[in-house]
């Protein structure tokens, strides 16, 4: 548990969360969301919850990105707002 590390990760979490909401290109938003998941995984691993971090790395950063990309591929790529 290193407080400085925590704070850096939390700042990046907020930044990536805001970016993934603001970006019009849905593919880009998906990639930023995957970075968000990966930061979340780092945060959990750093807090000692390795099982949860493992799940987040596999599901959040891995498979859900593929699902979102597969969905975007068959729908529109650009968001209207």
């Amino acid at each position: 548990m290193i407080v400085a590390f925590d704070i850096i990760i939390l700042i990046f979490l907020v930044i990536t969360a805001v970016i993934s909401l603001r970006v019009r290109d849905l593919l880009g938003a998906t990639m930023v969301l995957s970075i968000y998941s990966f930061l979340m995984c780092l945060l959990w691993a750093e807090m000692g919850a390795v099982d949860v971090a493992f799940t987040e790395a596999a599901v959040g950063a891995g498979v859900s990105t593929v699902f979102l990309i597969a969905t975007i591929y068959h729908t529109r790529r650009h968001s209207s707002d």
Binding site: V50, D51, A53, F54, T55, A58, V59, G62, V63, V66
Partner: peptide, 17 residues
Amino acid sequence: SPGGGFQGGVMLGASFI
């Protein structure tokens, strides 16, 4: 060690993906 049914299952599914 860390892991279990959920994580292993996701990775096995991901290999088919």
